[in-house]
Write a protein that binds this DNA or RNA. Structure first.
Length: 282
DNA sequence: ATGTCATTTTGTAAATGA
């Protein structure tokens, strides 16, 4: 089973990239962020092409900003349209989380508040929001939280830590909030797969040729509980989706899970009765 | 680099957010 997360920076504008990407990568579960659409507009633009590809979806949108979705072709049940106890920013309950049960996993697509700068009210809101996210996890073992965390877990996840010392995304309180979430029993599966690699980035600013120079950050994460984390066969960043014309400023993260051993693994195809004969070596 | 992209509007240029 293939799970992916992608901050698309407008699902409508990204449609010419999103649909071919679905066809190429064939994910079973997709968490999207920054759809920037109302629920109605998302359905108008995407319901037909997604149905054609076998996906059900759950979308939570505001219209102008934010907006998250889960696409699934392995079931989509018990949809929760917000985090329990999610804080508002001003009076607005922003569209930053949607949860559903897909393929035996409790999946949440998250778009964590950016924070702007550490002295901005948006930063305090970010920390409150992360606390609500932590408190929303009831069964870590089967949980997957995937999306744009707007936090680089360590300095290795930033192209130049010196550039970000006074910035959001790397401050100790944000990293502590992420550590609390992980401390519930979740695993950052890309980092677990590539413990010694630097320059694993998922986001590159559009400005200043940052992608071309590979000056990015790893802020899009897949956090998985013990069951899915133990079945990770592959975990990687799809940098190809950041190239070419009209990309998002984020690349997708793709995670492949082996089938659960205690479940129905489907029909077992027997090997051919006669082994194929190799041509003679010359 | 103040470098781009996407959104919206007392709208067609400027603001806001990332």
């Amino acid at each position: 089973m293939r799970l992916a997360t992608w901050n698309v920076n407008s699902a409508l504008v990204r449609l010419p990239r999103l649909l071919p990407w679905l066809d190429e990568r064939n994910p079973d579960i997709v968490c999207l962020q920054e759809t920037k659409l109302s629920d109605e507009a998302f359905a108008d633009a995407l319901a037909a092409p997604l149905a054609e590809r076998g996906y059900e979806f759950a979308h939570v949108g505001e219209g102008r900003w934010n907006g998250v979705a889960i696409l699934s072709r392995v079931g989509l049940d018990d949809v929760e349209r917000q985090l329990p106890g999610a804080p508002t920013f001003g009076d607005v309950l922003e569209a930053r989380a949607v949860t559903a049960t897909c393929g035996g996993l409790r999946v949440t697509s998250v778009y964590v508040p950016n924070g702007r700068t550490p002295d901005d009210p948006h930063y305090a809101y970010k920390l409150e929001w992360l606390a609500a996210l932590r408190d929303s996890v009831t069964d870590p073992a089967t949980t997957v939280i995937a999306g744009d965390m707007n936090i680089a877990p360590t300095d290795v996840d930033v192209w130049d830590p010196a550039v970000f010392t006074e910035s959001t995304h790397v401050t100790p309180p944000e990293r502590a909030a992420l550590a609390e979430l992980v401390g519930l029993g979740l695993i950052d599966v890309v980092r677990a797969k590539w413990p010694d690699h630097d320059r694993i980035f998922t986001y590159w600013d559009y400005r200043a040729g940052r992608f071309h120079q590979d000056l990015g950050m790893r802020i899009d994460l897949v956090l998985a509980g013990a069951d899915p984390a133990g079945r990770v066969a592959a975990a990687w960043v799809d940098r190809k989706a950041r190239k070419g014309s009209g990309p998002s400023d984020h690349a997708p993260v793709i995670v492949d899970l082996d089938e659960a051993l205690d479940g129905d693994i489907g029909p077992v195809v027997p090997p051919p009765s006669t082994p194929k004969k190799l041509p003679p070596r010359r």
